[in-house]
């Protein structure tokens, strides 16, 4: 009987989230809200507004597969835990997920054993103040929006609020999300069990 093939040590063979990705992430999310780069074309802004509204709807409807399909194969979902979000390699995050962790997050909620989501929260999201900014790359835009998530769970309704930054990249006729940074206004405080995807 053949011995099973030795699996390569993953820490040496692959760097799916590598330093270049981190560098780009930090660069993109530190210096982009520049009035001179604001997209003023209303039709273009509306395209991005529709993208963000669709994302909100899919999350409210727990349509995670469709939601994940809005993201590029390599993507980052990042909820900083520091008000002036710094380097996620050196600062803790409420959530910092590459695609694999994001898949884990969704898989976990579907097991029925994620106790803080059994039953699942009911949510309604309001997305407003949508702005788009050009970047140095033709195929990339940065989006800023404000959000207010009402979450009913257990026996109470609470509100999670803040602003989100999306880095989107051209995908055929549309756009895909490469990175999403969710900035809760109380990100460094006790946020009662934020088990939903923001």
């Amino acid at each position: 009987m053949n011995a099973p093939a030795q699996k390569p040590d993953p820490s040496r063979t692959s760097h799916y989230v590598n330093d270049a990705l981190y560098r780009a992430l930090i660069e993109n999310f530190s210096d982009w809200q520049d009035d001179a780069r604001a997209v003023t074309d209303l039709a273009v802004r509306d395209e991005f507004r529709r993208l963000l509204e669709r994302e909100a709807r899919l999350l409210d409807q727990l349509r995670y597969d469709d939601w994940l399909a809005m993201y590029t194969p390599e993507c980052v979902y990042w909820v900083p835990s520091t008000p002036q979000a710094g380097d996620p390699r050196r600062e803790i995050s409420v959530m910092f997920d590459d695609r694999r962790r994001l898949e884990d997050r969704i898989y976990r909620m579907r097991t029925g054993f994620a106790w803080s989501q059994a039953p699942a929260s009911r949510t309604v999201r309001l997305i407003t103040n949508v702005e788009a900014f050009a970047t140095a790359r033709d195929d990339t835009r940065m989006l800023r929006s404000n959000f207010l998530v009402s979450e009913f769970w257990g026996d109470e309704t609470r509100v999670l609020t803040g602003w989100a930054g999306h880095r989107v990249t051209r995908d055929g006729a549309g756009w895909k999300i490469e990175a999403k940074q969710v900035n809760l206004i109380d990100c460094d405080q006790s946020i009662r069990n934020p088990s939903i995807i923001l």
Partner: peptide, 25 residues
């Protein structure tokens, strides 16, 4: 922690992130 155990166990080792991803899984 059954839900995250199940999630981590079903993840393929063929999909890698950086070393910090390995710590988590």
């Amino acid at each position: 922690h059954r839900s995250s155990i199940d999630a981590a166990q079903q993840q393929s080792d063929a999909v890698h992130s950086d070393g910090t991803g390995e710590i988590a899984i």
